[in-house]
Design a protein around this nucleic acid. Structure first.
Lengths: 127, 127
DNA sequence: GCATATACTCTCCAAAGGAAAGTAGGCACC
DNA sequence: GGTGCCTACTTTCCTTTGGAGAGTATATGC
């Protein structure tokens, strides 16, 4: 404890902190993030298009992820009662704000990709 | 295609995009994020302390997460050759920069927690 | 010589995730 | 009028991942 009061700028309610952690755990999901990116980039999309856009997602996980995102208020689901079925997904304002929040992470990934690869090479090269 | 050129500000190499996606998938992991937060907040930590700090992580996942983060160059692992063993973990500059990138996500979670809960209640209330 | 303290590691079992086939139902085609 | 297509799932089966808890190594204090 060299610098005891170094970091406690805002004494947050531990109950809130727990809920935030839980929410982070829910939202910091590989597929959620990837779906979010594609919806942000391409706007309104249908199910099959999303399945093509997101690299290796299975139909099951796409359905599951979209449902969870809908439940959390991140995407809006529009069902057109036609045959064959037509369902459109688009980000809500909340979803778009999350996308913006994750923006820094994408920039980080782009910017530090080389460093991560170098670190991996170095790590794997150790005997 | 109402606005064809609406969003393609930087024509990124698709190969880079793939690698970024892969990196995002690796880093956007519940435990990675939570461990990152604790290391950011508490500085250098030992294994057991981290296990206490991160809500419900198992020893196996903590080991696995720390190893992966070390491999990616996010944390530095210092082994003190004493008995009983003493191993310290701290963020590297790279890890700290990732923490800052995720900062926006935490703020988002804190700020929009209520909205997400409301959305869930509304969703669950539908018949 | 026996418990202790620490950072794992191993084993076993449950849960999550992927692949592929199945479902519903109006419509075009033969 | 029967067949198959189209789309958004759903179901089934099997593999992989993750969690709980016990085991491991070993110098030190009692």
């Amino acid at each position: 404890m060299l610098q005891p009061e170094q970091k406690s700028p805002d004494p947050v309610d531990p109950r809130v902190e727990m809920l935030v952690n839980e929410l982070i755990g829910r939202v910091a999901d590989k597929w959620t993030l990837l779906v979010l990116e594609e919806l942000e980039e391409h706007g309104t999309c249908r199910f099959t298009r999303l399945a093509q856009l997101v690299p290796g997602i299975s139909q099951k996980m796409l359905t599951q992820t979209l449902r969870a995102m809908e439940r959390d208020g991140l995407v809006h689901r529009t069902v057109h009662p036609v045959i064959p079925p037509k369902v459109e997904y688009r980000l809500t304002d909340l979803g778009r704000s999350l996308g913006e929040a994750f923006c820094g992470v994408w920039h980080w990934a782009e910017a530090h990709l080389g460093e991560v690869e170098a670190a991996r090479a170095e790590f794997d090269g150790r005997d």
